[in-house]
Design a protein around this nucleic acid. Sequence first.
DNA 1: TTTCAAAACGAACGGTGTTTGTTTTGAATG
DNA 2: CATTCAAAACAAACACCGTTCGTTTTGAAA
Lengths: 190, 190
Amino acid sequence: MPFPAKTDPESILNAALEMLERDGPEALSMRNLATALEMKAPSLYRHYPDKAALETALKMRGSEMLQAALEKASLNQEPIEVMRKAANASLKFARAHPYLYDLMNAPGGAPSTGAAKKLWNTILEIVGNVTGKPDDTAASVAFWAYLHGFCSLERTGQFGKSGPKGGFEIGLEALIIGFSSHQKQRKLKP
Amino acid sequence: MPFPAKTDPESILNAALEMLERDGPEALSMRNLATALEMKAPSLYRHYPDKAALETALKMRGSEMLQAALEKASLNQEPIEVMRKAANASLKFARAHPYLYDLMNAPGGAPSTGAAKKLWNTILEIVGNVTGKPDDTAASVAFWAYLHGFCSLERTGQFGKSGPKGGFEIGLEALIIGFSSHQKQRKLKP
DNA sequence: TTTCAAAACGAACGGTGTTTGTTTTGAATG
DNA sequence: CATTCAAAACAAACACCGTTCGTTTTGAAA
């Protein structure tokens, strides 16, 4: 059967994503994945140098999905409402794709891929439109940290037993107020 | 040699913590750990039912350390300054114990241990003194999410290539401003 | 028709967490 | 003092993991 390849990197990636989202990270082994593709584990190494490369590809895919969700949520809204919509879209994404979100934020190796940069630029734009300063790295960092922190803590169940009761909106509005007052300071200075 | 135990759960835990902090999570295998204690892997199972239990103990230890750091940073300060000091202590902890911090926030199983509850109560108290409302779950969730998110993103290098330039203080102050205005609303109501 | 490079594979290596059954031990008991 | 006995450490093995090597199979190109 070999020569006209029985599979390709994209098919493998799709199968890996489906397996990860359905059965979790422990089920995503090279043997399991190969079996799902009706082949044997060593064959996968013709398309990805190792498992880490496959996981990197999964992270990129996740970044693309999240970036698309943020961009979609940002359409035709005033800046502050865009920030709210984007925040909720982010939370929704993390809840809908928990294992993928875990992988995206896993400690091991965070590459500055094109997808990650594009995601970061989207955040910069959303936040910049609120603070009034384009490329507002500091505020964007804060916004992004808050979103990721909430998603991460919610998923690992680290909030009190009562759960994150209303905490998401409170913090988001606090950031918005803080950013807006920060904007006023900038405006008043010159 | 057996009977008067050659080791005990606490010694194992100490060795595991040292090994984790020095050589990272991949080095923390049962065989490695046993070798460091001059024994063989199966012996460890007399003291911990499995590796997950050992990791849970490590998480608890981490929570204790972080809680102690927050409490120490909170002494003899006015509420808002306590919040700043605690935030910086949290960031310092994550930087000083990256692998332990990773493990504490790892996806797998988050137990509501005594240590975790105590840590959560410390946060509740810090935040409550700023918002003026004790047991302010919502604001505490937001504060905690922001801190963890920043530490997590910094560690995984997900900020832009310029790094989190000044982002930590900006977001922290924004939250404080937001919380304070929230407090004013509460105060004006009755 | 023959060649040949690419893809899939069989087998194996070293590593992991874990289980089972055995051996060693020394404090307690008679 | 001698014996008992439960607890601790261990040797061996199992199933799985990611990965590598060398071989076989293939079908398009020459």
